[in-house]
């Protein structure tokens, strides 16, 4: 049995210790935010935060999150949607949307560390996530303007 916190709630799973965190989140806990795009850590669609760090959940065995705080995009929207989520909506940074949860988790982690990133800093932070719809232009727009808008 693995116990951890997910989106602020205590959860436990009887999944095999080497089960992918992605599968536990999707199959056992029924979150739909983390997506599987490649299953080998290349596309970033499954990105969640573990103790604040953006991590690709398809590469993490669930035993590694024992006692950790896991956040999915559903948790990022609680209690209110994060500034970067609003910015994605406003600036057209989501198109088909399948990569969006992963980008949001990577972007939120960046903004925690660096609330006013340059465009280049945003690109570096998001380089582990693939998007095929936007050309990244509006994603970068949204990330650099997310916090600026609040201030």
């Amino acid at each position: 049995m693995t116990r951890f916190r997910c989106n602020g709630m205590d959860v436990q799973t009887g999944a095999a210790p080497m089960s992918r965190l992605l599968d536990v989140l999707r199959e056992d806990l029924r979150y739909t935010g983390p997506k599987e795009g490649c299953g080998e850590g290349e596309c970033g669609a499954c990105t969640v935060r573990i103790d604040g760090e953006p991590v690709m959940s398809c590469l993490v065995p669930v035993c590694q999150v024992e006692g950790a705080e896991v956040q999915t995009v559903e948790g990022l929207a609680q209690p209110v949607v994060h500034a970067v989520q609003s910015a994605f909506l406003q600036h057209g940074a989501a198109q088909c949307g399948i990569c969006t949860p992963g980008f949001l988790m990577a972007a939120a982690a960046l903004l925690d560390e660096n609330p006013h990133p340059t465009r280049e800093e945003a690109r570096v932070a998001l380089a582990g996530n693939l998007c095929r719809c936007t050309g990244y232009q509006k994603i970068v727009d949204a990330v650099v303007r997310a916090i600026a808008k609040e201030a």
């Binding site: 739909t32 935010g33 997506k35 995009v73 559903e74 989520q85 989501a94 198109q95 949307g97 969006t100």
Partner: peptide, 15 residues
């Protein structure tokens, strides 16, 4: 903003 945008940014869109 796109109609399906809110669901897409909170992860509730069902693919």
């Amino acid at each position: 903003p796109r109609r399906d945008g809110l669901e897409k940014i909170v992860g509730s869109s069902l693919y």
